[in-house]
Computed example of a mutant assay.
Amino acid sequence: MTELMDLPIDLMIDILLRLSAKPLMQFKSICKLWYYIISAPQFADLHLAQTLAQSNPNLRFVFSAPHLSIAEFDTFDRITELNNPFRNQGFAHVVGSCHGLICLCNYDLHLTILLYNPTTQTHKKLPFLPKPSTLSHRYSFGFGYDDISRDYKFVRILQSDEGTGPFKSQVMVYSLKMDSWLRAPDVPRPFSSCREDGVLVNGNLHWIHESFNGKEKDYSIVGFSLVDHSFIEVPQPTFEEEFINLRVGMLDACLCLMVNDLDYSDIWIMKEYGVVESWTRLFKVKQTKQHLFLEWPIAYSLNRQSLFLQLNTWRVVSLNLQTMGVKDVKVCDFPRCFDTQVCIENLIMLKDSGSATLETDYLQEKKRRRRRKQLRHQRNNSVDEIMDDNREN
């Protein structure tokens, strides 16, 4: 460690960037120089870019069962309940995750939205956004990263009920960089999604739009750009069979569809975003029980021999890619598992009114160390005085 401290600072930074986030968080206490290097936003950005470029980054499995917890991926062991700010304040629903940041929504606290980093144990509560009284409670949410502005954004879409007068909507976008809400263009036409949380692919959030034409349901894929805040419709593949429902997801950074019917669930992937001809059916999975639909893919196993999937019955299953066999994954003692996400570790520090700034945090720790040193000194002096009194007596 002494040899590392004597290195030129550029070389020191290069070595530190090669380490994973968790030990780096511990190394912040070694010295003041390392504290400011590791805490710097520029260092966190470089470390994140290096992590994302790895073919096999240090992944973590985040889930609710029913409390928000984290585990090793893909062994699902070493489970730890996350000490997030909503822990004792009602149910915290996971809207989504991006770059290791988790977006939480608390329905018990008037839809309070929170960004939370389980690695750095920091959070950011979004400014309260009231709901217009003229709009119903039909919500759609989404969370993701805008690569152009390099900004994390949260999207809240409200829509009025169809058939109760003129259609109204409100689309609000929160910018973490600006720490403020922006009104985006309204929804061009009503859409109703069975899953209120958008899936981020290629800079767009996606929902499955369900409508009923009088005889059967129609489906379309609605997209919302985090760059220019516009709505798009993504082309679907051509299905040969009739299906019960569609679910949208992301796999290998590509948009994918879960196509469920009574007997099978097909997994489709859009290899080239926006190109309808690039839709490819990857897997056809036989239903083990009726109405056990695939909700979304979680991730491939580290050896890519299996694919972990979320079922509509709050269960996680493993699909063997050789045999196409499906088996339950035992994540924890709780029989159900939902809000499943795969996250990476990162050094992003989220500042909130309830969190100290980096410099204040360091100064407070320095003050505590000085106070402990003073107390030890006082105790030692007291012991010496007692010993002197004993000797005199």
Score class of each variant (00 low, 15 high):
280 T>C: 12
62 V>Q: 06
322 Q>G: 12
364 Q>L: 10
237 P>N: 07
204 N>D: 10
175 S>E: 10
382 S>R: 13
218 D>Y: 06
67 H>A: 08
91 F>G: 01
79 I>C: 10
30 I>Y: 01
318 S>M: 14
22 K>T: 15
116 Y>T: 02
16 L>F: 10
39 S>Q: 08
103 C>Q: 08
313 T>N: 12
335 P>W: 04
190 P>H: 04
103 C>F: 08
201 V>I: 05
44 A>S: 12
43 F>R: 09
107 Y>G: 04
98 C>Y: 05
206 H>G: 04
268 W>I: 02
285 V>G: 05
323 T>L: 05
190 P>G: 05
131 K>P: 02
173 V>I: 14
99 H>Q: 08
41 P>V: 11
239 F>S: 05
208 I>N: 00
2 T>K: 06
293 F>G: 00
300 Y>F: 11
252 D>C: 03
55 S>G: 11
283 F>G: 02
147 D>W: 09
380 N>V: 15
189 R>I: 04
164 T>M: 08
135 L>Q: 08
61 F>A: 04
28 K>D: 09
179 D>V: 05
81 E>K: 14
41 P>I: 13
32 K>N: 13
93 H>R: 13
230 S>L: 15
226 L>S: 01
17 L>N: 10
96 G>D: 08
43 F>M: 07
170 Q>D: 14
166 P>G: 03
152 Y>V: 04
104 L>T: 02
217 K>Q: 07
228 D>L: 15
91 F>R: 09
52 L>F: 02
91 F>N: 02
57 P>V: 15
270 M>R: 05
378 Q>D: 12
78 R>W: 05
225 S>Q: 06
179 D>Q: 10
380 N>Q: 15
181 W>R: 07
286 K>D: 14
128 F>C: 08
294 L>E: 00
57 P>L: 09
90 G>S: 11
210 E>L: 10
256 C>I: 01
323 T>C: 07
231 F>G: 06
89 Q>F: 13
273 Y>H: 11
297 P>S: 05
100 G>Q: 04
238 T>D: 13
7 L>G: 06
192 S>P: 00
165 G>C: 11
99 H>D: 15
54 Q>W: 00
384 D>P: 00
123 H>A: 04
54 Q>P: 00
199 V>G: 01
206 H>Q: 08
141 F>P: 01
239 F>G: 02
60 R>P: 00
220 S>D: 15
379 R>V: 11
184 A>L: 06
152 Y>M: 10
301 S>R: 09
216 E>K: 13
81 E>P: 03
90 G>Q: 07
362 Y>C: 08
36 Y>A: 02
75 T>P: 03
372 R>I: 06
83 N>L: 06
292 L>I: 14
346 N>A: 09
243 F>R: 08
309 L>D: 03
282 L>S: 05
205 L>V: 02
380 N>L: 15
12 M>K: 14
260 N>S: 13
61 F>P: 02
350 L>H: 07
325 G>H: 13
366 K>I: 10
251 L>G: 00
133 S>L: 14
37 I>L: 11
96 G>V: 04
109 L>G: 00
361 D>G: 06
232 I>K: 11
6 D>I: 08
108 D>S: 12
261 D>Q: 06
195 R>N: 10
367 K>H: 07
289 K>P: 00
142 G>S: 05
376 R>G: 06
160 S>F: 03
305 Q>S: 11
315 R>S: 12
64 S>E: 00
181 W>L: 08
